[in-house]
Structure formats: structure tokens, C-alpha cells
């Protein structure tokens, strides 16, 4: 029935146009742009071949950015996926009753808040002169621990990462809650009869049963870390120095502060390859599992 196939193209046309114009074409154009040198406000584009990519290899800021997104990914997986799973398992305990639902809602609230709002609030907390964090440390007699959390290159990236954890742990928790709801109850009932404690049940039933979601959550968290922009941009601007720079903030600053659009396009290509690799890894893992 070729008529139906023609129908399909008509129905899918708006989708194909929008995605073609705003997703796939830019992806290709980005590679093209990365071979040029040009600034945001000039018409001239100078062909420089692979120069931008050669520079990526020697740019120390790229190295910092990679280390930072690596840290971002590692800590996020640990806190969001690890702690998120624990929270989800705990909240699914029957004895909590209505409290389970209330807390679940509460823990998800940071996820729906705008990152700008959250970042501003945490800027107040981190302030070296009047901030709550230093004040609390002084109260409990840990004066030597007080510092300019966002203004010191040794702590800036961790302070930024902490804000992301506060916002996102609820998101991953929610993914796991949904997954846990899909686990057949009789598995737990059988374990109860066998006398297995809650910890044993967590490791022997919950974790294996949500394995797919573990992979998904890890991939979501890692790709999120590779492309993270708003948190460092708003909280530190990538500083002090380049100490809290990420791939996306380095790209943004190259494009719109240092007048190097071509170089920014090259950084974008790196981000694409990195996120693609992680996503393909996910598909592979799922492919093997089935």
C-alpha cells in the first residue's frame, strides 16, 4: 500500500523539517565551522584546516575541563545514582505509609526549580564574608575550615558539583522509585519468609531487579556531566583562573568572549564525540543484556 507510505512522509514532514533544520543540519555545520577561524561579529571566515583540533590537544584549559567533567561525572554517579538508589529503596518501604509519598514529593522539588534560582541561593550560602556555610563551621568550632568556597581554585569545582547534587539527586531517585514499583512484590515476600533482612533484600532483590535503570541513570548522569554549563557559568564563571571550567563553559567563552567561534565549534565536536560514546556504550550494554 504505497499510499500509506506517502501518508507517512506527509505526517512526518513537520518533524523531519524541524529536526533536520535545528538538530542535524547544525551538527554537520558545526564540523564545517570547526575548520575555520572567525569571530561572532565578523563576516569573514578564514580557513585554518585542522589547526583548531591541533590546538585542542595542547590547550591546558581543555585538560582542566576534562578533569572537571570527569570529577563531575564520578561524584554525580556516586551521589545521584548511589545515594539516589538508597533513597528510592528506603522510600519504598511499606511502613512509611503516607510519609513515603510526602517525602518523595519533597525530595523532587529541587529538580523542578530553575538552576538560576538555586545557584543564586547557594551563592549566598558560600559567601566568604556573610555566608551561612562558614558561619555554621565557626559555630561548631571548625574555624580553620572556613574559606571562600567558590573563590578558591582548590574548592571551586567541588562547591559547584555540590549544588548539582542538591538539585539532581531527586531526579535519579524518582527514576529508581518507578523501577522499584515494577518489581513483583512476591519476590520480597518470599525473601521475608526466608528471613532475609532489609539490607540483604536490597542487595539481592532490589539492585539486580533495577539493573536496567542503573545503566540508564548512569548514562543520563554522565552525559549530563559532560555537557554541564549552567551551574559553573552562574556560580563561578569557570574561575578562579580556569579552575572550574567545564567543556561547555570553555566553548561558550571561546565563542562569545575570546572571539574564537571556530575553536568553539571544535570543542563542540569533542563534546559530541564524548556524549555519543557514552550513549553507544549504553546501547551496547542493553544489546548484550537482551
Amino acid at each position: 500500500m504505497p499510499a500509506r507510505a506517502l501518508d507517512l512522509w506527509l505526517y512526518a514532514a513537520p518533524f523531519l523539517i524541524v529536526v533536520g533544520v535545528f538538530v542535524f543540519y547544525p551538527l554537520a555545520a558545526n564540523v564545517w565551522f570547526s575548520f575555520y577561524s572567525f569571530s561572532a561579529f565578523s563576516q569573514e571566515m578564514k580557513l585554518v584546516g585542522l589547526e583548531n583540533y591541533r590546538r585542542l590537544g595542547t590547550d591546558p584549559v581543555m585538560l582542566t575541563a576534562f578533569i572537571n567533567v570527569g570529577l563531575y561525572a564520578a561524584i554525580s554517579v556516586l551521589v545521584q545514582v548511589g545515594f539516589g538508589l538508597v533513597l528510592a529503596a528506603v522510600l519504598s518501604q511499606a511502613f512509611l505509609g503516607r510519609w513515603g509519598g510526602v517525602l518523595r514529593t519533597l525530595f523532587f522539588v529541587p529538580v523542578v526549580m530553575s538552576i538560576t534560582v538555586i545557584a543564586f541561593v547557594f551563592t549566598f550560602f558560600y559567601d566568604p564574608m556573610t555566608g551561612l556555610l562558614n558561619m555554621m563551621l565557626e559555630e561548631v568550632g571548625m574555624r580553620s575550615w572556613t574559606r571562600a568556597w567558590l573563590g578558591q581554585s582548590s574548592t571551586a569545582i567541588y562547591a559547584v558539583i555540590a549544588v548539582s547534587q542538591w538539585q539532581s539527586v531527586g531526579y535519579v531517585m524518582m527514576l529508581f522509585i518507578v523501577a522499584i514499583q515494577g518489581i513483583p512484590r512476591d519476590l520480597y515476600e518470599a525473601a521475608d519468609l526466608d528471613g532475609a533482612g532489609p539490607v540483604a533484600q536490597f542487595f539481592h532483590i532490589t539492585v539486580p531487579q533495577v539493573r536496567d535503570m542503573l545503566v540508564v541513570a548512569t548514562v543520563v548522569t554522565v552525559t549530563g556531566s559532560l555537557t554541564v554549563f549552567s551551574e559553573p557559568y552562574i556560580l563561578t564563571g569557570g574561575g578562579p583562573g580556569h579552575s572550574s571550567t567545564t567543556l561547555a563553559t570553555h566553548m561558550y567563552r571561546s565563542a562569545f568572549f575570546r572571539d574564537e567561534m571556530g575553536y568553539a565549534a571544535a570543542i563542540a565536536s569533542v563534546i559530541f564525540v564524548a556524549t555519543m560514546a557514552v550513549s553507544l556504550l549504553q546501547l551496547r550494554i542493553f544489546g548484550k543484556a537482551r
Binding site: F22, P26, F33, I271, T275
Partner: peptide, 21 residues
Amino acid sequence: MACIGGMLVAPQVALVPLYKM
């Protein structure tokens, strides 16, 4: 395939060409 491909592209990657566009 176009759907799955579209999901794999992070918006950040398209920033420079989108700006020009």
C-alpha cells in the same frame, strides 16, 4: 532512526551553527 538520532545530540553541540542560523 531519526528520532533516536535526534535524542543522541546534545543541544550544546549545535550552539555555534544555531547562533549563525
